[in-house]
Design a protein around this nucleic acid. Structure first.
Length: 201
DNA sequence: GAGTAGATCCTCT
DNA sequence: GAGGATCTACTCA
């Protein structure tokens, strides 16, 4: 299992990177507790020309500043006041591209995730959906800007690949406010996987 | 099972 | 001062 190199994130084609991230493994190791999961759903946010992106029109604020950094770091922010959402920054420095991780299939540390989620009802799908996923993996806004080359939070490749016919794309979720850009097929997911958010198809 | 209200707070206008 | 890259739980059927 190998950590993805900076060169992987710093390529310019975010849609290609997003597709290639499907099937990769997201790993965190906080305080000796390792949790990991295979990425099965994500969305691309293509910087200044994408109305759904925080950086649309070249906006640069204290919150999204990290999107302008060189690829290979995490962009984590708070949404709706209570959910932490995890993004991977891509492209070279100065171009605010990011990929939102929306769903993973747990591999290691399932019990730790359950504990972190503190669910009333037992729910196996605690890593389905961006908010829950961040909670289960122990990710929060304090980790904004974290390098994915570190040893406690990174994405790895174990050689596994989902068959091409399982990979699908669709419009993104929850971005209706973005007008025509809400229709762009920038969401990539694994067809039929239980850890993909939204209605099963 | 489907539809919806409420939570909750940071960020930008 | 408004609204958001969400989720849960409650209602009604």
């Amino acid at each position: 299992m190998e950590k993805l190199p900076l060169s992987f994130y710093q390529r310019k084609n975010i849609l290609l990177i997003a597709k290639e991230l499907l099937g990769k493994i997201l790993v965190t190791r906080w305080e000796g507790l390792e949790t990991s999961g295979r990425i099965v759903e994500l969305e691309a946010y293509r910087g200044v020309s994408d109305r759904a992106s925080h950086a649309y029109g070249g906006r640069q604020t204290a919150r999204n500043e990290i999107m302008y950094a060189a690829g290979g770091v995490a962009y984590i922010y708070l949404c709706y006041g209570l959910h932490h959402l995890v993004n991977v920054v891509t492209h070279e420095a100065g171009t605010p591209h990011a990929i939102l991780i929306r769903g993973i299939a747990p591999l290691e540390g399932m019990q730790i995730m359950q504990q972190r989620a503190k669910r009333k009802k037992t729910d196996p799908a605690i890593t389905r959906g961006p908010g829950k996923l961040a909670l289960a993996m122990g990710l929060h806004t304090g980790l904004n800007g974290w390098s994915l080359q570190s040893n406690d939070f990174f994405i790895a490749d174990d050689g596994f690949q989902y068959p091409k016919e399982w990979q699908a794309s669709s419009p993104r979720i929850g971005v209706d406010y973005a007008g025509d850009d809400a229709l762009l097929p920038y969401r990539f997911y694994i067809r039929g996987n239980a850890f993909v958010s939204g209605k099963p198809k």
